[in-house]
Nucleic acid binder design. Structure first.
Lengths: 202, 202
DNA sequence: GATTATCCGGAGTTTCTACTCCGGTTGTCA
DNA sequence: TGACAACCGGAGTAGAAACTCCGGATAATC
């Protein structure tokens, strides 16, 4: 499924050496863990330490810190898009939609600084992020349409609203990270709002 | 109403000199504007420039950048608490509650980095912020209880849930800052969820 | 108006971090 | 197994930003 990574640049590049490939994966994994735990402001040196490699190695694979952040974000967004696609096969469209929503929010609750990735996906800053963001929006849009057709989600909202609510709910979940009951009740409010028929509120 | 500011420290301090008082106010105002426009990561020097004073002056009034940020946050939180108190006199409790909610979110839409202040109020990091945060929670709690007694807000949620939704909705609004229609529809979803009766979602 | 405590300005110091560079090491291929 | 290209580590560099310090200016007081 995944072709072997190649050195950056257009056209005919060589495949990466085995150790390089291994280190790249380690760095990415370490970066995700560190950024999640302490925010995106932690130093690149800390990421290198966590990955068990030198700083030079980190910067060779990701030429700037921003590129590293972007790579982490893209990884997460792609993972989410895949989850959404998987849920497209579910029998109950409404349940599929709300399950996905809850799962995204659940990730945000424990994994800090993830909201930024979601927000990024919505506004398309960088090129590669944009591509993966499109992928996620496509998948989420499909889930939403199916749920609306089944009458499980109000018909008067679109993808932008859902995306905004996703970002907001993730932030809210991060905010009440300690208390699972509060988080559940907060999510219930949003879900009830998403189900509400448009004529409900005079 | 406001007693003249005094030099920091416990016990018998002298009142500030007139120019010192003026500069302090200027710095605070400039900091709020700059942080709102470019985020809290802008340099203290930029704040000083905007305020038309030297860097030394900024650091004399606010010994660290963190103290400056905190002062800005406290100012905003206090302003919100006052707004909430003012709305306690409104005749329609439900309208008062939702008006306040929308107003807070409206601030966040244009004024960046304000969500952080709200979040801070919820978790009580610093001492002075904690005090003002308590004040805001008290006022918001009163608005909520009145609205619930009037049947305008579902009874199965408490202040923590509302606070989380406020933080989340503010983040969502910031995210769709460009599009007022999307923001309005997103807020409608949250409001409908807040109104929904608990047995609605069997 | 003279005196003095207070305050201001901004150059300088310290610290932190992203990023570079190259001698040494390791994987790859014949 | 030998030769070479690719890769690694981490000391070193550059730049930015928080914070300090003191000579000069200014407001308060008599």
């Amino acid at each position: 499924m995944t072709p072997p990574k190649r050195a950056s640049g257009p056209g005919g590049d060589r495949p990466l050496r085995a150790d390089a490939l291994r280190n790249r994966a380690r760095v990415l994994e370490a970066a995700e863990a560190v950024f999640a735990a302490h925010g995106t402001s932690v130093s690149t040196e800390e990421v290198a330490r966590r990955a068990g490699v030198g700083i030079g190695t980190v910067f060779r694979h990701f030429p700037t810190k921003e590129a590293l952040l972007e790579a982490v974000f893209v990884t997460r967004l792609a993972r989410l898009a895949a989850e959404a696609d998987a849920l497209m096969g579910a029998e109950d469209p409404g349940e599929a939609f709300f399950t996905f929503f809850a799962r995204v929010v659940g990730h945000a609750a424990t994994k800090n600084a993830f909201t930024a990735a979601l927000a990024e996906a919505g506004v398309d800053v960088r090129a590669t992020t944009a591509e993966t963001g499109r992928e996620l929006r496509r998948a989420l849009g499909a889930l939403l349409r199916r749920a609306q057709d089944a009458g499980a989600v109000r018909p008067d909202i679109g993808l932008p609203e859902v995306l905004a609510l996703l970002v907001g709910a993730s932030q809210a979940a991060e905010h009440v990270a300690g208390d699972d009951e509060v988080r559940a009740r907060t999510l219930t409010v949003v879900f009830d709002g998403l189900r509400a028929s448009p004529d409900h509120a005079g």
